[in-house]
Nucleic acid binder design. Structure first.
Lengths: 211, 211
DNA sequence: GAAAAAATCCCTAAAATTGGGGATGCGGCC
DNA sequence: GGCCGCATCCCCAATTTTAGGGATTTTTTC
């Protein structure tokens, strides 16, 4: 059974090109091709395609919004964003809206085909740069709260460093290995921190730091 | 120039198998093969491989910890987790620690090879299920507006009450007497709270609540 | 009224944290 | 040289927290 694909793309040339690519692929079938959000929202639910290739920049709205609304009606369909934008916010918004893939328009024909099949296999096709951004945002959990360090500037650099790790939720053992020191040392620093902040537990120290 | 690969894997059979796969690939070169964390941490920095294939379950520690420490010394090397665990927490921890890929051990030889080359191309190889989990966590992690607590509104009134006390820094014993219940009851509620918030410590719960 | 959820309490065991002692180097400063 | 702050590590003991099992009663929900 061929994979049915719908396209939402306002650029006629590009839409034609993709249409042709789908048509040429023996295992794919074109279910629907829309030029704007209104058509997409009215026609795609009826077509119930396996995969929707979605442009972000549509004349009458955003592909992200369209994604969110389509996913409500068609939770079983996979939406792949296909766009020139690689702005982090766009990416996150699209993923939040329920997109399962994020391909940049500079991708090759092969990449596009491969991504569609990937989607059906349960994979999450993403351009490398996009995946990096997603992963990266994971790796920096909480970079905020820099300025008003309240009354805790009596801490030594090391203590401040460790307090920041505390505020990210790491247990002492993790802190020790992240900083390549022993748990006892972490312990000593904690004792100093509690002393200087006038608190008696890890939780209180974190509250003081975050508050 | 071949891609140099280091392996950290305590299972001898599997380690041999991977070694063979690397040896058979013309564009790969085995830089180092370690059976435990201690060796990995002492030998891999010297070898400075392009890619590290890292098991999570090591006899003398966690591959995640090893990843964090290696990435400190070798920010240019890419670490790919290779494990049987697909627990969400493990995945997130690994990504936070700096891993750039996450492959499940049931992956085929081809997938392994492809993933290594992917890594060098700047992609982020992930088994489909893993990618899904990452994306999924995004789909409900990002909208962290102060109003929509999503995860926290599944808490029962009592649990919410206790979480608020936690966030004020009270130890369990205090909470118990403030609410005229036993410490064990506080304990039970804490267990439910941690479970629902997907955290494993008092501090993490408070951070989540205050964040 | 039965089923489900919430709240309460209990036990046990392992792990982590807290709080007291120290001790050793290292670098700045007077 | 001597002093002091900083970072590191160690020992020990008491306490707290985490995590696994339950069990019971009340309240809510269907």
């Amino acid at each position: 059974m061929p994979i049915s694909v719908a396209i939402v793309e306002d650029n006629s040339d590009l839409a034609e090109e993709i249409t042709q690519i789908i048509a040429d692929a023996p295992d794919l079938r074109l279910a629907c091709c829309c030029r704007n959000m209104r058509n997409a929202l009215s026609r795609i639910p009826a077509a119930a395609p396996d995969v929707v290739i979605m442009d972000i920049n549509l004349p009458d709205g955003s592909g992200i919004e369209a994604t969110a609304r389509l996913k409500q009606q068609l939770p079983g369909s996979e939406v792949m964003i296909f766009t020139i934008y690689e702005d982090s916010d766009e990416i996150f918004q699209a993923l939040e809206a329920g997109a399962s893939g994020y391909l940049l328009k500079r991708a090759s024909t092969d990449e596009l085909l491969h991504s569609i099949r990937d989607l059906m296999d349960g994979n999450v096709p993403m351009t490398g740069e996009v995946a990096r951004k997603v992963i990266h945002s994971f790796q920096k959990k909480r970079p905020c709260a820099p300025s008003a360090n309240t009354a805790a500037d009596k801490l030594t650099p090391r203590e401040t460093d460790i307090l920041e790790l505390l505020a990210k939720g790491f247990p002492s053992k993790e802190i020790a290995s992240l900083r390549c020191i022993s748990v006892q040392t972490v312990n000593s620093h904690l004792k100093s921190i509690y002393d200087k902040l006038h608190v008696h537990s890890r939780t209180e120290a974190v509250i003081k730091y975050l508050g």
